[in-house]
């Protein structure tokens, strides 16, 4: 079995653990932290998937996803703090 697939399954298990925090999270920033962690883990998962199937297009998707999820995090943070940035 391909080692990259095994690593991908384990990364997806950590995504599942992080989802528990998103569901539980007593405050809104807790949920945002959970989502931010999930974003990073999903990027790692996409890279592993691209390496496992030798498809470079997944790595391109991961780069774009990294930049877009960063903008999303900044946007949510600005919404939370209110007022001027």
């Amino acid at each position: 079995m391909n080692p990259f697939m095994i690593a991908l399954v384990l990364v997806l298990v950590s995504v599942a653990i992080a989802i528990i925090r998103v569901l539980l999270g007593p405050t809104v920033p807790d949920r945002v932290v959970g989502l931010d962690t999930i974003n990073t883990l999903v990027i790692a998962g996409m890279l592993l998937f691209g390496a496992a199937y030798k498809e470079i297009i997944y790595v391109d998707v991961a780069i774009v996803y990294a930049l877009l999820s960063y903008i999303t995090t900044l946007y949510i943070a600005k919404y939370l703090q209110g007022g001027k940035l």
Binding site: P29, A77, K78, L80, Q81, G82
Partner: peptide
């Protein structure tokens, strides 16, 4: 950004 927003929103 998240830490700053959390502190300003009162956590």
């Amino acid at each position: 950004a998240i830490a700053r927003a959390a502190h300003r929103s009162g956590v």
